[in-house]
Amino acid sequence: MTAFNGYPFSVFLAVLLHGLIIGTLLMMQRVSSEPAELVRPPSVQAQLVAENPQARNEQVQAQQAEQRRQEEARQQEAQRQAEQRRQEEAARQEAQQQAEAEAQREAEAERQAQLQREREVQQERERQERLEQERLAQQRQEEQRRQEEAARQEALRQQQAEEAARQAEAQAAAQAAAQDQVAGYTAIIHDLVQRNWSRPPSARNGMTAVLRIRLVPTGDVIDVEIVRSSGDAAFDRAAEDAVRAVGRFRELSSMPPRLFEANFRSLLLTFRPEDLLN
């Protein structure tokens, strides 16, 4: 019986046991950590402004359509020019034939020579006309190019405008986030002070003490003064002691300096024993 050692089986069982225990621990941890995430103060907010992909697609499509239309126009223009060139070619050939006929009939009247000269003049005029047309075509092309340039600039301007709008939106979101953050930090401060506040027995409902706290960016309280007394010295003192007992609001040290300067350099706290029964 001693040759039976059962080591592989035991190793398997032992490792399984530990795996089970660790797994259970992990599960419990996960379950217990879920509500903790829900309690988090809403001080952190997404500041990313979502781009609308649909609008962008539409814009891109419109640009493409515009380009296509321009391309078509350019092609039509080219066709028209080709047609003209063909017509001119035909005219030139005809003129040549006529000239040949003229040469054959040179012995005939000078009137015909005159006519030919006139024709030559006409040809010259036609050539000039052709040149003129070419120049016109060039001008047209330039015009088109200029228009395209203008369109591109327009698009660029639009994009910039959109960019600006997006930035403005982001800024607005950031501002909202900052307000949320301020609210979160204020809640933390109230919570801390409240925890450290032991109300004197002389506290009555309706008493109100307003304190001004001066803070430095590390969260340390450097000064506490009573702005409005409740009329009860013990109550005032207790409120002041509560702030001094906190001493330092550690959470404030992690906030952006701009936010701090804007909201927390000097802070008014109101103490009201509202939750008392008497």
Binding site: M1, F4, G6, F9, S10, L13, A14, L17, H18
Partner: peptide
């Protein structure tokens, strides 16, 4: 400690099997 725990559990289970079979034999 984790290793010690695992090894000791290997021993525990293996000894249990050995002692049971010795008893029965």
């Amino acid at each position: 400690l984790l290793l010690a725990s695992i090894v000791s559990w290997v021993m525990i289970i293996q000894r249990l099997l050995v002692l049971n079979s010795a008893d029965q034999g």
